[in-house]
Design a protein around this nucleic acid. Structure first.
Lengths: 216, 216
DNA sequence: GGCGGTTGACTGACCGGACAGTCACCGTTA
DNA sequence: TAACGGTGACTGTCCGGTCAGTCAACCGCC
């Protein structure tokens, strides 16, 4: 957690530091991020960062949690909880794609907690990151099973796992340099992804999910 | 590529260095791996490593490529190319799970080329790593489509992408600390994974794939 | 088979750069 | 003038890569 000072400084300074930190941590990873460079980019002195946070690790954890919060708001914020599971999943994929294209840094931060040398962080954050989505999906599938919209022989845990797995791969494919290359190789796409290439991909994935869940 | 010297030293010394390097790079990541510590673990002097390889980066790339090679041999080696796509996919998942449990380091190396600060490496290796599997799966699906074993309205590229995506998530779930925690949370498993928890998961995933491909 | 010479793998102390975190001082405001 | 946020030069540590020197093995010659 930040020190109190961090919440007493002007909001734009706070935002700028968080923005630059998210960008740098995402671009270079935790260990390769240089606090002096971060200070320079954020337009403050290195010492100031240590007035706001106990340590680099402290800052990193806060930036990650803050990023998860922002992602969640962007993706779940405009969703009507009364929509059926199929419409909600479609919404999540579409809003996710939109959000990740304007703010790839947060998804990269997420992806990095699973990389080598980060197990210290993953022990702190993985559960807290995954629990929200896992619970949400399971509740949603269960609710629509009761409404007769989902086959009643579906294993709720497994189904939620599959939905989220496909979501993770999809999002990573838009953002990580490795997964972008991989997606291009599989779909034999030249150049950047456009709505014209992404729409059928989302369609294919959501169709697969529908197939898994929909009554015969 | 290694220098010639590397191929002139006794095989067990060579193997030991590669083994320890794969282990350390996987455990701590590229940047956090200390060449002095690696030398100590491999039972040689730091200078010797630089008699075998130009640089840390050179060693890393060789260890990764070597690991991919070994993984491929373990997983594709005992497979009969005449088996139908469903049997081959099941074999890949089962052998993959077996291999990754005895040699998690190679899959971790694979997973790490997609992490932050590794884009330099992913540009070098991603294509070469993914191309093999992508081509293999596409060829297999196409062949069995001609044999009438796969629905003829399936998009081969998309189908291969889905199969490999589920495979990646599955393998990562057995190996990365983050994905292990995530799998436990979704499936509500306590403690370690056993065959009893893994078998139904493989079953669920291959069923989903079969559903995607099999004629009505 | 003994001897001098040559080769090349092996070694680890050392160097230089990078970088997290500190601290003594500064400027502003109440 | 006290309190507090801001600052950047400084420090200690870490680590990739180097290199001058060692030594065992091998070779050709007597």
């Amino acid at each position: 957690m930040p020190k109190q000072t961090f919440f007493k400084i002007p909001e734009d300074k706070r935002e700028r530091l968080l923005r630059e930190a998210a960008g740098l941590f995402a671009e270079r990873g935790y260990n390769q991020t240089d606090m002096a460079q971060l200070a320079r980019r954020a337009g403050i002195a290195k010492g100031s960062i240590y007035n706001y946070f106990e340590s680099k690790e402290d800052l990193y954890l806060y930036v990650c949690r803050d990023g998860m919060q922002r992602s969640r708001e962007a993706i779940y914020g405009r969703m009507d909880p009364e929509w059926d599971v199929y419409r909600q999943i479609e919404h999540i994929f579409k809003e996710g794609a939109r959000f990740v294209q304007s703010h790839p840094e947060y998804l990269i931060l997420y992806a990095n907690i699973s990389s080598a040398g980060m197990s210290r962080f993953s022990e702190l954050m993985s559960l807290e990151v995954e629990k929200y989505t896992a619970d949400y999906l399971k509740r949603l599938i269960r609710r629509d099973m009761q409404r007769g919209l989902v086959r009643d022989d579906v294993d709720v845990h497994f189904a939620a796992f599959m939905v989220n797995s496909l979501y993770i791969i999809f999002m990573a494919s838009l953002v990580s340099s490795h997964f972008k290359i991989r997606l291009r190789e599989y779909l034999e796409i030249e150049g950047d992804f456009t709505d014209a290439t992404l729409a059928p991909l989302i369609q294919g994935i959501t169709d697969t999910i529908n197939n898994l869940l929909k009554p015969a």
